[in-house]
Design a binder for these strands. Structure first.
Lengths: 162, 162
DNA sequence: AAAGATTGAGTTGTCAATCTTA
DNA sequence: TAAGATTGACAACTCAATCTTT
C-alpha cells in the first residue's frame, strides 16, 4: 500500500470530527434562541468588552469588516445591541449590548460551558491534562507560524488556569 | 472580575486560532492550484478511494448531497474527474479522478503534509506526545457525544492503513 | 490620502422540492 | 415507495469599490 497522500495524524483526525460534529460549529436554535455561530461569538465578545468598534469586533471574530457590518445590522434589528458613532471620532461605530443582548449572551454562554463540561467529564484526568498541555503547545506554534515573531514583539503570554 | 460567560479553556483557545489561521481551513491558490477547501478534500478522498458515489463522497466530506453535486460539477468542468452512471444501478454516479486530477491531488497533498511537518517540528517531543494522546482521547469522546451508541449499530470500523 | 464603515457581486454552504431509476 | 442526484431559494462569508470622516 502506498503512503497516504494527505496527513493522517491526530490533528487531522480531530479536525474531521470537529467539522462533522455540529456541537461546536453549527448554528444554534436552542433555548428559544435563533442565532448563527458568528452572532453567538459576537455576543460573547461584546458581553465582555463593551464599546468595541466594528473593526475591533471583526479582528476578534476573524471576519471581514463587510461581514461584520451586516452581522451587526442583524443584531441591531433584533434589538440585541446598539450602534453609536463615537463622538470623539465619528469614523468609529461603537457597539453596546442591550439588556436583552446581555441576557441572551448569558443564556448561550451557559449552554456552551455546559457542553464543554459534558465533553471534558468523559476524559480521564490523565487525558485531560495531556490535552491541555498539548493544545496549549499547539496554539503556541500555530501563532508562531501564522505571525512570525518580529524582534519588537512579545510572543510570551501569561499562563491561564485550566 | 466576573467569571467568563463563555468557555475559556485550551480547546476554545485552539479553535480560535484554527479559525484565524488560514493554513488549515482557507481556500488555496498555491502551486498554480486554484481550489476551494472542499475541492481539495474531495481530491484527497478520491485519490485514495476511486469509484466513490456522490453520496459516499458527501458522507466523507460531511457535505449535503446538493453541495456535492455542484462541487463535482465544478471538478468535472476542470477535467479533474469523470462522472459515470453505474451500469449495475443507474441511480449511482461513480467518480474517478483523471490523470490531471490525480496529479493535482499529489501536489496539494505534498503541500499539506509539508505544512503539518513544519508545525509539528516546532513542538518538543513531550508536547507532541501529549498532544497525540490528548487529541486521540478528545476525538473519542466527541464521537461518543455525537453518535450515542444504539444497540443495533456497529460503532467499530475497520482500521485504515496509515 | 487614509481609516472605518457600507454596498455590490460572486462563492460555498444549507434545506426543501423535484427528477430519475429501481 | 424510496434512494440517489439535481435544482431553486436562501444564508453567511469573501473581495473590490465606494461613501464618510479625519
Amino acid at each position: 500500500v502506498a503512503a497516504p497522500l494527505f496527513p493522517d495524524d491526530a490533528i487531522s483526525r480531530l479536525i474531521r470530527r470537529l467539522v462533522r460534529w455540529g456541537g461546536w460549529l453549527e448554528p444554534h436554535h436552542h433555548h428559544g434562541i435563533h442565532a448563527s455561530l458568528s452572532e453567538i461569538l459576537a455576543l460573547a465578545d461584546l458581553s465582555t468588552a463593551r464599546g468595541l468598534t466594528q473593526a475591533e469586533l471583526g479582528e476578534r471574530l476573524a471576519l471581514e469588516k463587510s461581514t461584520v457590518s451586516r452581522l451587526v445590522t442583524g443584531l441591531e434589528r433584533q434589538a440585541l445591541l446598539t450602534r453609536e458613532r463615537d463622538p470623539a471620532n465619528r469614523r468609529f461605530v461603537r457597539l453596546q449590548l442591550t439588556e436583552a443582548g446581555q441576557q441572551a449572551a448569558e443564556r448561550i454562554g451557559a449552554h456552551f460551558r455546559d457542553q464543554h463540561e459534558r465533553l471534558l467529564r468523559l476524559l480521564t484526568p490523565a487525558e485531560a491534562e495531556a490535552l491541555g498541555y498539548g493544545l496549549t503547545a499547539l496554539a503556541r506554534v500555530i501563532d508562531e507560524l501564522a505571525a512570525p515573531v518580529s524582534p519588537g514583539e512579545t510572543p510570551a503570554q501569561p499562563p491561564a488556569a485550566g
